[in-house]
Amino acid sequence: MGGAGWYRGDCHVHSVYSDGELTPDQLTAEALAAGLDFLATTEHNTAAAHGEWSAARAAGLLVVTGEEVTTRTGHWLALGIEAGEVVDWDYGVRDGALARHVAAVRRGGGLCVAAHPHAPYPSGDFMFPLECLDVVEVWNGRWSSDLPWNADNEAALAEWGRRIAGDLLATGRWQPAMGNSDAHLPGQLGTPQTVVHAASPTTPALLDGLRAGRSWIAESAAVQLDFTAEAAGRTAGVGETLDTGGSPVTVRVRVSGVEDGSVRFHTERGKVHRAGLEARWTTSARESLFVRVEVRHPDGGMAALTNPIVLR
């Protein structure tokens, strides 16, 4: 593992150092079996596990130091903090404290992620404005071990998807999505996992890729996806902007590792096209502000989804 490329990771993981059932060494074995290149240690409101990943590092697994900040009105992930650092969690949406703690994590080069914004338990719903953070966790695997996609994830995805066009028109930017297992139990790690393009397999480079939205989400390492848009001799991939020069845009998707299913193309007009697992679709910057895709199983469950390619 080295150099620029695509890396698979799970950035929401719990061990026996908070409320998980597995040790860091056991989670390391599961991460390697799940085909991961990196994971984040994100115990609830503690740094107790930060120094317990020597076996992971010896096996070549990158460990991002983090925390799940469990506030009274929602949880968020502080990724890339210093070893031993604990981000304060004792506040709620009425206290006006979130921005201060997010700013401190960002000053240190860290990434702030809204975790499971529609989780089905008290304080699990993320009641702060999503735009206060860098990334939204639209796919959380904890509550769906038998079926890796559920109504809470569907709600988070819909909320995120509806904001892309408005954010682009208002600010020229959009908030990336990611997916994590939120593993607490054996067999959960890596379902789902985020596949990120990074300049190198280092914490700063991986966080840069996630921050830029150069990433997509897969239900497992078996799923492979290639997603590009081409116009006027130029090509862009997931998370990038394509200058079309006013020319028609050809969007191509190729998926493997999914036994059956379909690719669904989304723009600011909603679901605009449905095709098989190797698909080609034509649009333009006039018709589509952006394009993103979802790969669905026949029962509607998610196999993969991408951040958008922006067209201009």
Rank of each mutant, 00 (worst) to 15 (best):
E68T: 10
V93M: 10
N45P: 02
V69H: 05
T65Q: 08
A114C: 12
H118I: 11
D37R: 02
E82W: 01
V69E: 02
A31M: 08
N45E: 11
A33L: 12
R72Q: 11
T42L: 05
R100I: 15
A78K: 04
R100L: 14
R57A: 13
A40M: 02
H75V: 04
L36G: 05
V63A: 03
G84W: 05
E30R: 09
S18V: 02
E30N: 11
T73L: 04
Y121A: 14
V93E: 11
E30I: 09
A104G: 12
T65Y: 04
A34G: 13
V64M: 01
E85I: 06
A40S: 05
P24Q: 06
L77N: 12
D125F: 11
S54T: 14
A97M: 14
G80I: 02
A103N: 14
D19H: 15
E43A: 13
L111R: 00
A83V: 10
A48G: 07
A55M: 11
E43L: 12
H116I: 00
E43R: 13
A99F: 14
C112W: 01
Y91W: 13
H118D: 15
H50C: 08
P120W: 07
V105P: 01
E85W: 07
A104K: 13
R107M: 06
A58R: 14
Q26K: 05
L98I: 09
H116A: 00
H101A: 13
A99Q: 15
H75A: 02
A59F: 09
E67H: 06
P120C: 02
L79K: 03
A49D: 01
H44G: 10
A55K: 10
T41I: 07
L32S: 03
G92T: 05
A104P: 10
R57E: 15
G108A: 13
G92C: 11
S54M: 12
G20A: 12
E85P: 03
V64F: 00
E52K: 09
L32A: 01
R106C: 01
R72S: 08
T28S: 01
Y121L: 14
D37A: 07
E82S: 09
E30T: 10
P120E: 06
V86Y: 08
A78E: 06
E52W: 04
T70E: 07
E82I: 02
V102K: 05
V63H: 00
P120S: 07
H118Y: 15
A29G: 13
L77Q: 11
L27V: 06
H50Y: 11
T70N: 08
W89H: 14
V93N: 07
G92V: 07
E21W: 15
T46S: 10
A34V: 11
A115S: 12
A56W: 00
